[in-house]
Amino acid sequence: MHTADVMIKAMAMEIGNNDIFLHGLASPLPALAMHLAKLTHAPHMVYINVADALDPEPDSYKLCLSSADPRHALNTKAVIELLETFDLAAKGKLTGMFLGGAQIDSKGNINLTCIGDYYSPKVKLPGGAAAAYLTPIVKKLIIWTTNHSKRVFVEKLDFVTGLGYEEGKEKDVTVITNMAVFKVTKEGFVLKSIHPDVTVEEVIENMSFSPVVKDVETTPTPSKDELKLIEKLDPDGVRFSEFKK
């Protein structure tokens, strides 16, 4: 089984039946996870995407290379401007958002802005998109990376683009990688599960800080039927393009 499918399932499991979720650009795994959740355990979930679409029909959906591709708005029920979704977030009604992280620290804070100093960056990254705005105000923040490594899991971010765990705030922070699933809580960066064929040692070796390791489970994998759903939504395998060959 490809790691992409394991990550999609793990993302989907964070989505509840009464949730409103948004995905942004460059988000093939979240787009599929939202479909998978809605087609299985969360049929009433509200699905909004960066193509300004509401509940895109899974039957006519085909995952495209740009997350804003107009085909992701095929048979949408409404045009929901991103500003409207941001208004939902300001009212506390947007449950969750998925964001990447070029760097992630032990609080689940993320850097998407630059490597090195802001005013003379070594690498100018594409930018934080909605991270700074949404990370402090959503109820469920799901951070993902397909590059579980010391370069991503750093002790100190070069730039704080988005906020992870914040004490006293009702916010569930999940970090999903190509190796494992973490929850960031007051106890720290807690390793919840490791994907099949991954060891706890590998997970820890590839991080610059130590996660909390207590009761580690194996990440549940998608069933045969769920895999069929994913395959049908993404027949071209766009979901694999984030992974190094």
Binding site: A89, A90, T113, Y118, G128, A131, A132, Y133, L134, T135, P136, I137, F159, V160, T161, G162, L163, E166
Partner: peptide, 13 residues
């Protein structure tokens, strides 16, 4: 006025 954002490094910039 916009919610969120406070606490990130973008504010100083």
């Amino acid at each position: 006025v916009v919610k969120g954002i406070l606490g990130t490094d973008l504010v100083e910039i």
